[in-house]
């Protein structure tokens, strides 16, 4: 299914969910939960915690579906953001990380279902191109932060450097990425 059709499908499911359509809500869950659970577990580190996050996120999706506006965010971005911020909240609440560190690059070759394919189709080229303009440390810092919810302190620890250095890497990465990505918008 082309990504436009997938987006439309998700938008429709969210719209129906907003109207209180429980079968549509379940269909939305069925369609995305594995992908979103994968997003969550990379941040919170354990399956129990990721399922808790998923639960909280879908309750929030149910309650806030009326407020989703497709002109402002792609449906998968909206759903993913909810899960990521809930996962980060969970991480902050637990104040500890259960998972062992896995370098983001090591999983880059996985093919992970329809949503990953959609993401690749939709964005991967431009982000990949812009990330390639960063040096390794800058790119790794961004990935660790976004994918695994690592704090600057944790990134510094894993990359064996100072927190201020990580801060500089992230700041420069942000500037370079913005400069590069803006041409695609």
């Amino acid at each position: 299914m082309p990504h436009a059709a997938k987006n439309t499908e998700l938008q429709t499911l969210i719209a129906l969910t907003a109207q209180g359509d429980k079968p549509a809500f379940y269909q939305l869950y069925t369609a995305c939960s594995s992908y979103l659970n994968g997003v969550a577990i990379r941040i919170v580190g354990t399956e129990d915690a990721s399922n808790d996050v998923l639960q909280d996120a879908f309750v929030q999706i149910w309650n806030n579906a009326q407020q989703y506006n497709p002109s402002l965010a792609q449906p998968l971005t909206w759903l993913t953001s909810i899960v990521r911020y809930r996962a980060l909240d969970r991480l902050a609440k637990d104040k500890r990380r259960a998972q062992t560190f896995v370098h983001a690059e090591e999983e880059a070759t996985c093919d992970n279902g329809p949503w990953a394919t959609l993401l690749k189709e939709q964005y991967k080229h431009q982000l990949h191109h812009c990330l390639s303009q960063l040096n390794d440390n800058q790119a790794s810092s961004v990935k660790m932060a976004y994918l695994q919810g690592y704090s600057r302190e944790e990134i510094a620890e894993h990359l064996g450097t100072k927190i201020n250095t990580v801060k500089s890497w992230l700041r420069r990465a942000q500037e370079k990425l913005k400069q590069c990505l803006i041409q695609y918008v």
Partner: peptide, 25 residues
């Protein structure tokens, strides 16, 4: 958010536990 989500293209999917949907429902 729109740009960085592409990083999740490499995120492995993980089927949720049965109890999760029950709790949501």
């Amino acid at each position: 958010q729109e740009q960085l989500i592409a990083l999740n293209a490499s995120t492995p999917e993980l089927a949720p536990q049965t109890r999760t949907w029950q709790a949501i429902a």
